[in-house]
Nucleic acid binder design. Structure first.
Lengths: 71, 71
DNA sequence: TCCAAAGGTATGATATATCATACCCGTTAT
DNA sequence: ATAACGGGTATGATATATCATACCTTTGGA
């Protein structure tokens, strides 16, 4: 599994969980204190984001980071 | 669990697995194609590193990224 | 018809991760 | 005694993640 594939997997999992929560990217960005201009590319797997950012997203979605790695 | 605590946990897990493999930080850095001036602070939890870097380390240690998150 | 909401992209500025290198300190072997 | 090794830090340069903002497109409702 390449780095790009990993990032895409993580992004898809974030999107999936966010939609399960019924919230928009804007709202998630607000809850994570981050811009959608950063959040959306993360969900698309275009940005090699940091652990700290994943932690913020995981907290906002009330899941564990490990959930973002599941296939 | 705070971000700092997460980073420290990840760093400790990396160090632990690296020592189980019996390799030095310099060797791991070489296998990951990264400098020890970056690797050691990551093992210490001082740097908010990226997913891409964790992937490189995980590959070099032949483990899954999720193993770095275990307590 | 139109307007607001949602997803998405573009761009310049700022913050920070990483590189490259040099150096310090303990320990261990010679 | 000292040289080599392992861990660790310091620093300036470079790459890139994130911010802040503006803009586009599509879709759904008034």
């Amino acid at each position: 599994m390449t780095e790009r594939e990993y990032l895409i997997l993580i992004g898809k999992n974030i999107t999936k969980i966010r939609k399960q929560r019924g919230i928009t990217s804007k709202e998630l960005g607000y809850q994570c204190d981050m811009e959608k201009s950063n959040l959306i590319p993360i969900e698309k797997g275009r940005i090699n984001t940091t652990i700290g950012t994943l932690i913020k997203i995981a907290k906002a979605l009330d899941v564990d980071i490990a959930d973002f790695l599941k296939r």
